[in-house]
Design a protein around this nucleic acid. Structure first.
Lengths: 337, 337
DNA sequence: CTGAAAGCGCTTACAG
DNA sequence: CTGAAAGCGCTTACAG
């Protein structure tokens, strides 16, 4: 920058003003053009670090992900989500740094990222329900956006509307004439996503006047294999369901295996709806009817919200809930009975 | 830091020395302990930006990924790879920033990242074969690690051993007694990964004294649907193959559909081997025999190499080729004839 | 309209 | 053994 100033015969102040397009500064167009020209000739590139030191910003946003590949896997969710985030923030010259949180660290490691001035804000994916560190950071006015559940507090967050998605799925099954509808969750019910989906299930049943039967609802646990036993249990019931809503496509994979292992057919003997619309859902046999999560849009919303918070435009307590979409494929059919 | 110095009654220089554990500086233990103690009490956190400005480093490494979700999708590859990279570099206090390269940008955008002092090095995933920008940056001594193919130049890179993986797969088929073995590639043969896998296929055939039959090899193009037509074509041959090596699990998904559409059975009528071992490979019907890519280890290697380059420990032209692993499942069987 | 100067928070020869 | 001082490359009141 000093070089540019010297060659143009002006001060660094002036160069800075021109290059940054500082408003309220009537610099004659001649000067402006000359400086711009010289900067171009010299192929001047600002040293962002110096800029950051001076302004106190880092133009970096961290995405904190849980280490478990369990969660990241399966769907292309992580990739899509990241694309959504970067798409939004890079347009404003922010960058995304990925930070893998140690799942069993005694001390959360991402607080350091912001206290140490490495990043301006934290995008936290599926935070632990009781994360003290997050609350503390939030109270210290760190820009934070949570992806996923939160308890009562007013930390800004984005999530998919789990309840609505589940409701839609079960409602669809009911419209097909099913009355005996089972549910296998995506995760233990202590997870908010899991209990929200259960709520949606219950709501749809209630609306249709179908009594809730607790022997019909069982918990899955993320993986395909975790769907196997619950489905067998459902099939072994004296009065088995004619349809099952599974809270996760991965878990549904295991459920499908269980159904085949009993020699039952999908959808003739049992209709199945999943959740997530993972990439493979359209390639299962039969292709799986499921609830699509808008991963890319979720990423965009998260990035957007973060930018707003940093600019001070966001109201506390903002929670963005994105709708899901029912994707009907071949694993569901009218209730035979 | 000034606060710490003042409270401890020493200069900032001394504090800096102690906190950074600078060698060759005999500071009495008493002073050292006192400063450390005070820093702890004050909960002192260094401003990394200032540090970086002073040292000229950013402690950031960019992972440049192509925008196409095509590539990122399907497997959990991206996620695992990222975990591998962060695992290695975060241990050395580096961080990973994800940068989505515009696929159709007239000007590559990642050069700016390093010229502008946002990152210290570039990890470029599946670079374009003829990327001038990469060469230029390399010549400017930018630390670069390529993931994937390179042409002749000596830019450091990591990749999976595609040729060896394909060789292994086809060799396995041959050992099962198959002589008429088809091949559907993962991508057009202009892609290095694709032509390398073809090489492996040819090598295995040659070793077994099986003549190369070009009517038996066809190109896929990343997606499942791109595997459908080629497989139909193979099945329609007057003398169809008894086994097919598909260069991608995704493409194999489409091939499986084609086989079913013809009423043929896997593996009884036709054995199938895929490549990648995507998450879903174990859930296809039947579960797919395939070649596993060590995504996590690939990430670690890439991170490792980057660190070495930055430290000046790496020799130019380093290329790390990681071996694959054959995962035998149920889509392959002894040649019936 | 434009420049001199202080400041951002650190590191690191250099001198004592 | 330790400190004063210059420097990293920018921004931004402030003054003229």
């Amino acid at each position: 920058m000093a070089d540019v100033a010297k060659l143009a015969g002006v001060s660094r102040t002036t160069v800075s003003f021109i290059l940054n397009n500082v408003p309220d500064t009537n610099i004659p167009d001649a000067t402006r053009q000359r400086v711009l020209q010289i900067a171009r000739e010299l192929n001047y590139m600002p040293n962002v670090q110096a800029l950051n030191l001076a302004t106190g910003k880092t133009m970096m946003i961290a995405l904190v992900v849980r280490q478990t590949s369990e969660q990241m896997s399966g769907d292309a969710f992580a990739g899509e989500f990241i694309r959504g985030v970067t798409g939004v923030i890079e347009a404003e010259n922010y960058h995304l740094v990925i930070h893998a949180a140690e799942p069993d660290a005694r001390e959360s490691t991402y607080g350091k990222l912001v206290r140490t001035h490495k990043v301006d804000g934290l995008l936290i994916s599926s935070p632990l329900v009781n994360d003290q560190e997050v609350r503390l950071l939030y109270r210290e006015e760190t820009p934070i956006v949570l992806h996923g559940a939160t308890d009562t507090q007013d930390i800004p967050s984005v999530d998919v509307d789990n309840r609505q998605g589940a409701y839609m799925a079960v409602r669809y099954l009911i419209d097909l004439g099913h009355r005996r509808i089972g549910h296998i969750s995506n995760a233990p019910f202590s997870y908010a996503s899991s209990s929200d989906r259960l709520d949606g299930y219950c709501q749809a049943l209630a609306e249709a006047g179908i009594p809730y039967d607790e022997s019909l609802v069982l918990a899955g646990e993320f993986t395909a294999s975790s769907g196997y036993e619950p489905m067998r249990a459902l099939l072994d019931l004296p009065n088995p369901p004619t349809a099952v809503f599974v809270g996760s496509d991965m878990v549904a994979l295991g459920a499908m295996e269980a159904i085949r292992s009993r020699g039952a057919r999908i959808p003739e003997d049992i209709s199945l709806v999943g959740f997530d619309d993972i990439l493979y859902a359209r390639y299962t046999m039969p292709p799986l009817t499921t609830v699509r999560i808008p991963a890319y849009e979720l990423g965009r919303s998260a990035g957007d919200l973060m930018l707003k918070i940093i600019r001070g435009e966001s109201l506390p307590g903002t929670r963005i809930l994105l709708p899901t979409e029912l994707v009907v494929r071949r694993s569901t059919i009218k209730c035979p009975a």
